[in-house]
């Protein structure tokens, strides 16, 4: 009863409606992925697993998925490594022109992707004559994910006590050894979130890939071109629903790991 009194008010009502507004469109996708009409339209006609079975034989879709996974993993590895180095430099050293460097690295976050895409295209095709492949897509994805990685890792590095590192140095560890034995374990959660953030950003990025992929399609390119052909959409919906389910499982698993790893003190942070 007390629970009801506390939650029956306009603000709680708004919060629940807001979540509905966010969820209803997204949940339509799995709903239609089980519908046996080739067109995505109401009324629903019947249940089927047809589209999920089709996925296995849809070679162009699978190869696009594989391209995106490759690019995503490569991009998140490179960006997280660069972000780690940059964040370390920003937090540990007194760099001359620190603010300028910081602003420069964050610049790709405030330039519209459209501009990054066309300007890179002009450089690569009109001036350097570089062939467009998944490598060019990956390079542009590194550019847009490096600032994210640096921000995430800086937030993590600013949080911990520098004297821990100094203690390790005083006790005779080399700079590299104290980094590996003291700093790295402390920064690990940041590295994991940076990796995930970079992967998701690259995996879902359409515009840069559209300009820079040449003839190799990434998954977003494949999805975008499928949306023009109604008969291709159900397969895409099935794949989208699978990706959604996998990511929910992953995040729940990661959260479960985090709760097991960190007991008490740190879990109250969020």
């Amino acid at each position: 009863m007390q629970f009801l009194r506390r939650h029956l008010n306009p603000l709680s009502f708004f919060a629940v409606s807001y979540l509905l507004f966010l969820y209803v469109p997204v949940l339509l996708l799995p709903l239609f992925s089980f519908n046996d009409d080739i067109y995505v339209r109401l009324p629903l006609t019947g249940f089927t697993l047809q589209w999920y079975k089709n996925l296995m034989n849809n070679t162009s879709l699978l190869s696009a998925l594989w391209s995106s996974v490759q690019v995503g993993i490569g991009v998140s590895l490179v960006s997280t490594l660069l972000g780690l180095m940059a964040a370390r430099a920003m937090t540990r050293y007194r760099l001359p022109g620190r603010r300028g460097i910081y602003g420069l690295i964050l610049l790709p976050l405030v330039i519209p992707y459209m501009v990054i895409g066309v300007s890179t295209l002009v450089i690569l095709r009109r001036m350097l004559d570089v062939d467009l492949t998944l490598w060019t897509v990956g390079a542009s994805h590194v550019l847009i994910t490096v600032p994210l990685s640096m921000l995430v890792l800086m937030a993590r590095m600013e949080g911990f006590d520098r004297s821990l590192e100094e203690a390790s140095r005083d006790l005779g560890d080399s700079a590299w050894k104290s980094f590996r034995r003291v700093t790295l374990p402390l920064v690990m959660p940041g590295i994991v979130s940076s990796f995930l953030l970079c992967f998701i950003t690259s995996f879902d990025e359409y515009l840069l890939a559209f300009f820079l992929a040449g003839s190799d399609a990434t998954l977003p390119i494949f999805i975008f071109s499928s949306l023009r052909f109604p008969n291709k959409i159900p397969d895409v919906l099935a794949l989208g629903s699978l990706i959604l389910m996998v990511s929910i499982v992953l995040v729940v698993f990661a959260e479960w790991l985090r709760r097991r790893g960190v007991s008490g003190s740190d879990s109250s942070v969020i």
Binding site: L82, G83, M85, A86, R88, A89, M90, R92, Y93, R94, L95, I101, L104, I105, L107, P108, I111, V115, I116, V118, S119, T120, V122, I123, M127, A139, S140, V142, L143, V146, M150
Partner: peptide
């Protein structure tokens, strides 16, 4: 040392963001 650590990232932003912006 810090500058060496941040140099690769700076090189990427300059080479892939500033140069293309200038080009456009």
């Amino acid at each position: 040392d810090g500058l060496w650590l941040i140099a690769p990232t700076l090189a990427i932003v300059v080479g892939m963001m500033l140069v293309p912006l200038l080009a456009i």
